[in-house]
Design a protein around this nucleic acid. Structure first.
Length: 892
RNA sequence: GCCGGGGUGGCGAAAUGGCAGACGCGGGGGACUUAAAAUCCCCUUCCCGCAAGGGGGUACGGGUUCGAGUCCCGUCCCCGGCACCA
């Protein structure tokens, strides 16, 4: 036998990548029936510089799905692009003097090369970057449509101000009271901002979560529901004592406790306060307001924040019984939820209970537990906490004696008849603060003039293009500091708007859009397949027919960290696109797969400053016991011990990252792909292990060697195409194994994209393929099946082997070969081995013909020598025989 | 506190209510080699036993069932999200 070809991943991978690209086989047509089409999408990356392991995992999963679906005959749309506006580009400008544009596009070029080197099967003709003028222009058009639809407004409000970035942050960009990017403190500041009216869709966004059930992970749907936060209750008006012109409206979910109100609390920034605080208390209230405003929203209302309040000197009147109760300004009452005023019932609300105790406010019981032993009631009786559960109404006028749940509605109705209250619904969801005081984002297409104030630009004046001659010193907004950009047109003339008395000087809005804007519709833009042309082929932001053809995305894959932000914004945006006539589809993603994190072990020591000092695994030597269990570790450099930490998500700060490029260079893309898919199911975390990578590589080498060893011998042999019943011995066993493997692999893919199980099935099949003991056509069947089953996961090596096994060497031969099929009739042997349980315990095994069933099977079991032995002469009281599965005897 | 997801060998993990631990990693032993690497073969859930064999075992406690890792009830622990939201 001649020398077999060595496995050289670098060569074959690049060869096939070029062949695929040249043949254009991953481009897709738009004119096939929708049920023959499949849109699989991975969350596009921010071009930070180079790919990390999280990207590799995300995109490998998506690519394996795309390739699998193609082999199943689908026309697969599998696009990729760049979320290329954003802060890091500006930070690079500040730190290194690199222009954001240059930095961004250089990163894109490098990362695109890495994606290609991984062999991902993207339709590259659809690629775009969000910072491309064409895409930004389309987004400005959409923005103006949203303005027209009333979905955009300006509002001055307390916003989160990042002291590190000198800009406004969205609530969700504030983590633990600190800026999510820089970790710098966040304070509250009053500023006018642009808002998108996402709350207009609150109800539809909430209802949509029910339709998405089954397609989306429960965790994500729950998070979105919590975030939207629908709350049903009542508004109740409390007149202010001595101020007949003012009434304070509270929102409550507990109208049943109305008779127990002993004080009312109000947000310190509530507008009505100025009118009703008497002079005697003005100073105290102002001091409290200042104190509250000095800290971030988190420090004010977070779990560690102290509940504080100050008596305003004013009293309000309980509309139910005329009782006069004090009004407190309290730090935990927020102005923009509900009405900013809360009725307080210490007896039946834990927070009110604590507050009342602190300030010596009375507690008035109006609900009594039905069961006097109720744990919470007992605690309440002991004066430890409020009683918040339902019960029977007491001391509540005509409602006394009713069940409290019924009284909620009864009291609301009673108040409504006299106009003192009404049933209402409140949402936790706030409108989306869109504006950012930054350079590297899409400009908001508004101008401002003396007479007209803010005016949207006419569409023919778009696009608003960012200036390139800007300076970055890390403070404020470079656009605002630019000498001419805000006041001149693209061709350098003074910027004007048409005022009532002719042209009037105008100034551009210098705020740019939040980058979640771009990621809210990129998936729709991919469906319009002319993204490489500067004019994008159509004047409209979307080609509606194409968008409606492909949307919703069949499978969207990304990290769970986007559960509320990106995924809720995108759902909102799709509805807004529909309502502005750009698309017909209202939900963007049919199925969502959240892949787990890539983790690695950590090693550390207590550092000098009390914080841990982390070490790269390369620097550490681990000590194992006889069973291979890690017992301790030492630093190679000094031989002293280090702490073996938990396995944690890869991060630079913990020094437990691996550069995927190194992995590709050492083992090839196929090994990287195989490792990441085999280590765990997609939604679970994977733990990085160099040994496991080697194991994946070893498997590929074994498949390679086996195929190459047989390729020449089998060159003119066709795969076995007969029926297993015409075979015997090892040949029959292998053919059955082939059919069983295809079934297992197919089930695993269709159920959960359980690539790890598919790969395991392939490994089993390979372990059974012993060519010397088999007919050539059976070997050929085994190998060609194996190669096709592995192809979606490790496409390069499979395509090379497919060619060498005579399947053809054109770029699309493997796709055309298709995913293998199986015949259930050829999966099982004629004899079935039945495990035998006696009284629930395993006692042995018997072999019976598979064809036996019913009474004949039972008869055969009863007469079997092994059965007689395990029964030890005792009578069989009950016999359960599950055909092909198990025999269970109850004896005694 | 509330919501969601988990808990299976030394490790990653498999198992439509039907032989728990497939497959892989690590570990042990062997072959090849001057040697190492690479490769190949065998063993590897725990306990008792030289062995044949026996017993235990899917976080813990109950339950349903001929039969439970899987279904039901309760408890503990871990991970993630939300949290003065009235």
């Amino acid at each position: 036998m001649s020398e077999i070809k060595p496995y050289d991943p670098a060569t074959i991978e690049v060869k096939w990548q070029q062949a695929w690209e040249q043949a254009g086989i991953h481009e897709v047509r738009d004119d096939l029936p929708r049920d023959k089409c499949y849109y699989v999408l991975e969350m596009f990356p921010y071009p930070s510089g180079k790919l990390h392991m999280g990207h590799v995992r995300n995109y490998t999963i998506g690519d394996a799905v795309a390739r699998y679906k193609r082999m199943r005959g689908f026309a697969v749309l599998h696009p990729m692009g760049w979320d290329s506006f954003g802060l890091p580009a500006e930070q690079a400008a500040i730190e290194r003097g690199a222009h954001p544009q240059k930095w961004t596009y250089e990163n894109i070029a490098y990362m695109r090369g890495q994606l290609k080197r991984m062999g991902f099967s993207y339709a590259w003709s659809r690629e775009f970057a969000c910072s491309d003028p064409g895409y930004a222009h389309r987004e400005q058009q959409i923005f103006l449509d949203l303005v027209e639809k009333g979905l955009v407004y300006r509002k001055s409000s307390l916003v989160n101000w990042s002291t590190g970035l000198n800009c406004v942050l969205a609530n969700e960009q504030v983590v633990d009271g600190k800026c999510w990017r820089t970790g710098m403190p966040v304070v509250q500041k009053e500023l006018p901002q642009w808002y998108l009216r996402i709350t207009h869709y609150a109800d539809e966004l909430l209802r949509g979560t029910d339709e998405l059930k089954g397609g989306w992970p429960d965790a994500v749907l729950t998070q979105q529901r919590n975030w939207i936060g629908k709350s049903e209750g009542a508004e109740i008006d409390f007149p202010v004592d001595g101020h007949p012109e003012v009434k304070l409206t509270v929102f409550t979910t507990r109208p049943d406790t109305l008779f127990g109100v002993t004080f009312v609390s109000i947000a310190p920034e509530h507008a009505a306060l100025d009118k009703i605080v008497p002079a005697s208390h003005r100073a105290a209230v102002e001091a409290f307001k200042a104190e509250v405003r000095a800290v971030s929203a988190h420090d004010r209302t977070g779990d560690t924040a102290e509940k504080k309040g100050v008596f305003t000197g004013a009293h309000v009147i309980n509309p139910a019984n005329g009782a006069l109760v004090p009004l407190y300004a309290a730090n935990f009452v927020v102005a923009d939820y509900g009405t900013g005023v809360v009725m307080a019932v210490p007896a039946h609300d834990s927070r009110d209970f604590a507050f009342a105790r602190k300030y010596g406010i009375p507690v008035r019981t109006v609900i009594q537990a039905v069961d006097a032993q109720h744990a919470e009631w007992v605690k309440y009786q002991a004066g430890e906490d409020a009683y918040t559960a339902p019960g029977t109404m007491v001391d509540s006028a005509q409602f006394t004696g009713q069940p409290s749940e019924a009284a909620k509605k009864a009291i609301t109705t009673w108040l409504a008849t006299s106009g003192k209250g009404r049933a209402t619904v409140t949402w936790r969801l706030r409108d989306w603060c869109l504006s950012r005081q930054r350079y590297w984002g899409n400009p908001i297409p508004f101008v401002r003039s003396e007479q007209l104030g803010y005016t949207p630009l006419p569409k023919q004046d778009l696009p608003v293009v960012l200036p390139t001659d800007v300076t970055f010193d890390g403070t404020g907004n470079p656009l605002e500091k630019h000498a001419t950009w805000a006041v001149t047109t693209a061709d350098g003339r003074p910027l004007t708007v048409r005022g009532q008395k002719g042209p009037e000087a105008a100034r551009r809005e210098t705020d740019t859009m939040d980058t979640f804007m771009e990621s809210s519709w990129y998936f729709a833009r991919y469906t319009c397949h002319d993204n490489r042309r500067a004019d994008l082929g159509c004047a409209a932001p979307l080609d509606k027919a194409k968008a409606d053809h492909w949307l919703p995305v069949d499978l969207y894959i990304g990290g769970i960290e986007h559960a509320v932000l990106h995924l809720l914004y995108a759902r909102f945006f799709q509805k807004a696109l529909a309502d502005t006539g750009h698309a017909g589809v209202r939900e963007p993603f049919k199925r969502l797969l959240c892949q787990g994190m890539v983790c690695m072990e950590t090693y550390s020591r207590e550092g000098a400053n009390g914080r841990p000092q982390w070490f790269y695994p390369d620097e550490v030597e681990v000590v194992r016991d006889a069973k291979g269990v890690v017992t301790s570790a030492v630093l190679a450099a000094d031989g002293a011990s280090v702490r073996v930490g938990r396995v944690e998500k890869m991060s630079k700060s913990k020094r437990n990252t691996v550069d995927p490029q190194k992995l590709i260079d050492t083992y090839g893309a196929d090994t990287a792909r195989l490792f990441i898919l085999f280590a765990a199911p997609p939604e679970m975390d994977v733990v990085w292990s160099e040994d496991a990578v080697k194991g994946a590589h070893r498997f590929l080498k074994r498949v390679w060697a086996l195929c190459q060893d047989q390729a020449v011998r089998l060159a003119s042999t066709a795969p076995f195409a007969g029926h297993v019943k015409d075979l015997t011995g090892a040949d029959a066993a292998v053919v059955r194994k082939v059919h069983a493997t295809v079934k297992k692999a197919t089930d695993a893919m269709e159920r959960d994209f359980a690539f790890n199980t598919t790969i395991a099935a392939c490994m089993e099949l390979m372990n059974e393929l012993k060519p010397e003991a088999l007919k050539p056509e059976v070997v050929k069947l085994g190998l060609t099946t194996l190669v096709r089953l592995l192809a979606p996961m490790v496409p390069h090596v499979c395509q090379e082997l497919w060619a060498d096994l005579g399947g053809g060497s054109r770029a699309d031969d493997l796709i055309k070969a298709g995913w293998p099929t199986y015949d259930p009739a050829q999966m099982e042997a004629d004899e079935a081995e039945y495990p035998v349980q006696v009284n629930g315990k395993m006692k042995g095994k018997i072999v019976l013909p598979r064809s036996l069933a019913g009474a004949a099977l039972e008869q055969a079991v009863r007469e079997h020598a092994e059965i007689l032995r395990v029964c030890e002469g005792k009578a069989i009281r009950k016999l359960i025989v599950v055909p092909g599965k198990i025999v269970n005897l109850v004896v005694g």
